[in-house]
């Protein structure tokens, strides 16, 4: 019982760990080759990077007044986009919840669609919608609607799956149909979570919406692209500062509201 066990060769020389480590090192080297990593050049050109930072460190304060309107437009886009996305997400999340829809097949299809939507990066959606509806904030709204739809439907159906089953059973026993179940037993239990997730998604969308304009989808991103194209880094700095302030304010408000809700 009390004897030190003997280890196999593989255990003694940590073969598994070394194999993993080797694989990892090879991956790092391989990916560095593939992406043309060249830190010598990076540090050689570091001066240019510093010059750029220096230019950005001198914000063009006069530009501030011009930035306010597009920043507000960004928030408007995020607000409408998130709301549309949420409204569409609600029925989908109910259909994807294990405790509401017992049909495995239907649930599987819905979840598959949701997973597909979630794989699409926001800027890619923006490029597509700019091609479809043209340059402007409408493309941004569509982008954010799809983007938040994917995110919020997952958060929502997970929230629905954690609810207390008691009231559901009670209503079923009283002869309620599916719609009545959702209205009287599900919604009251998850309402606060829904609002909280809505606010959370709104925060993320405000962040995302600030760059959508880079591809023409409205908001402050349009100005971001213009300033970068014109090498007006003082203006870029103002825009980034503006984004920072807005994101901090929205995060702060949303966090306070969410804390009060939960």
């Amino acid at each position: 019982m009390n004897i030190v066990p003997t280890r196999t060769f593989a255990q003694k020389y940590h073969v598994k760990t070394i194999a993993w480590l080797t694989l990892f090192v090879l991956l790092v080297i391989g990916t560095a080759k593939m992406t043309g990593v060249d830190f010598v050049m990076f540090f050689a050109n570091f001066g240019q990077f510093v010059v750029l930072l220096q230019q950005m460190a001198k914000p063009d304060w006069q530009y501030t007044s011009l930035v306010v309107q597009p920043i507000l437009e960004t928030i408007q886009m995020a607000l409408i986009g998130t709301t549309v996305g949420t409204l569409v997400a609600i029925p989908f999340s109910v259909l994807a919840a294990r405790n509401i829809v017992k049909n495995k097949f239907l649930r599987g299809i819905i979840r598959f669609i949701l997973n597909l939507v979630r794989t699409l990066p926001d800027l890619m959606l923006a490029a597509l919608f700019v091609a479809i509806v043209g340059i402007g904030p409408v493309a941004g709204v569509f982008t954010l609607a799809i983007f938040s739809f994917g995110m919020i439907s997952k958060l929502f159906y997970e929230a629905i799956e954690t609810i207390d089953e008691g009231p559901l059973e009670a209503l079923q026993a009283a002869g309620a149909n599916k719609t009545q179940l959702v209205v009287f037993a599900v919604i009251p239990q998850v309402f606060n979570y829904f609002v909280s997730y809505f606010l959370y998604t709104f925060e993320i969308n405000v962040r995302a919406s600030t760059v959508l304009g880079y591809l023409g989808a409205g908001g402050i991103g349009v100005y971001l692209q213009r300033s970068l194209d014109q090498f007006a880094y003082g203006q870029t700095a103002i825009i980034i500062l503006g984004i920072l302030v807005v994101v901090l304010i929205i995060d702060g408000v949303s966090n306070t509201l969410r804390e009060r809700l939960l």
Partner: peptide
Amino acid sequence: AIEALQRVGLGEKLY
């Protein structure tokens, strides 16, 4: 370390 472990009766748990 092996002896200390054996003292508390857990020599076979060394690894």
